[in-house]
Nucleic acid binder design. Sequence first.
DNA 1: GGGTTGACTGACCGATCGGTCAGTGATCTA
DNA 2: TAGATCACTGACCGATCGGTCAGTCAACCC
Lengths: 227, 227
Amino acid sequence: MPQASSLSSPLVGNDAHHRILAAAEDLFAERGYDAVSIHAIATRAGVCKANVFHHFTSKNTLYIAVLRQACRDSDENLHKLEGTNLPFAERLAGFAREHLSHVLERHKVSRLIQREMLHSDSSRAQEMAEKVFGDKFQRLVAVIREGREQGELRADVDPAMVATLLIGANVFFFEARDLLRHFPDVSFAANPERYSRHLVDILLRGILPAGTPEKTLVKPAVGKSPT
Amino acid sequence: MPQASSLSSPLVGNDAHHRILAAAEDLFAERGYDAVSIHAIATRAGVCKANVFHHFTSKNTLYIAVLRQACRDSDENLHKLEGTNLPFAERLAGFAREHLSHVLERHKVSRLIQREMLHSDSSRAQEMAEKVFGDKFQRLVAVIREGREQGELRADVDPAMVATLLIGANVFFFEARDLLRHFPDVSFAANPERYSRHLVDILLRGILPAGTPEKTLVKPAVGKSPT
DNA sequence: GGGTTGACTGACCGATCGGTCAGTGATCTA
DNA sequence: TAGATCACTGACCGATCGGTCAGTCAACCC
């Protein structure tokens, strides 16, 4: 039996091991663990069923391997926030936009994580998600806190709350997009860019007419061309 | 065979039909459709397996009945928003708080809907969720729009966006609560009240310091956004 | 009384599930 | 060339799946 774990060379890419992993990722993300049979995975991967068990000791092992692979190369784009010295508002807008497109682009992984989140009874789910998100969330919170301490944010806002709202708004957009599309009032369902701009605008300034500036239209972020 | 649908008297409550429905709701919410066997439902309901098929023609029929029952008595608390003549900010705060506790209390139904949302490939899911949420979402949007037209909100905020952020923040709190609990920076995971207060505070006022001049914000636009 | 109806059950069905195993053929080594 | 190792396969296993069916039992109708 070969290495059942997927720690070894990800270079090959053409052999059965990786095809099985890819097929399993597709199907698990689409239908969930219990609705996917080994036979279905094998068929999509173009191998026979027994070969799946040659590479992975069990269905559960394969699922774990898929999760692990999905969580690897999850090389978030926090540096956009940490690196630059732009005004905080612009850095936050950049992060929000890129995080959302990241979630939308890697929809298979997002789906897997979403499924894992409502499987919450097992401690494994939390532990994994914690190990996956913990670091990035903490870094995001740290950046926000730093911005607050430098007077770029209100002194009484909770950095963790801001981070949660930002991530949550993006995750919810991903989850509910197909629903939102059917609501006549919603104009942004097909337009993540606009959603992100409007989100950041509200997050930064709120919805009350407090200071009431005149030109308040939401705006594409600075010079950068939005892909 | 009796009425397979659950349109008939919900008065009895003690007979097998309702015990089966309740058991199915529990299990489907906990583990999902594919992970729950008819045998498990029958056992929890205290009946034999064949009796489940006496009351419901198939597993799928039972699942639909569970969803339908879950979506009934979904008697949201929009009247808190619509009825009163309090300042808009206070009405919104009241709605946010009650909607969150509604989602948290009826966690089984929330779970079912959450599962249904990521089963999005089927048109049934969207259609149902649309028929369930559509009306309430539209009413919420209408209330917000009305508040805006009366000058209680900034003129350039999108009411549907505000509604989405509000609902999304609450849904995400429900989904991610177990995760958030493990983040040392997060102080509100065990305290929905505090989360709700902070959410509304940020939603209303934003996170920037009061006197922030407009030019440091994400640039105000003149034209319409491209695409 | 006999007959009907409806709730309910144990036994059973074919299909499919996750998983095993003996073997095949190619490749490498000594 | 013999042997070992490798990826890989078809055939098979017991268990469980969703679903069926003949029949039991009590309540009601005439």
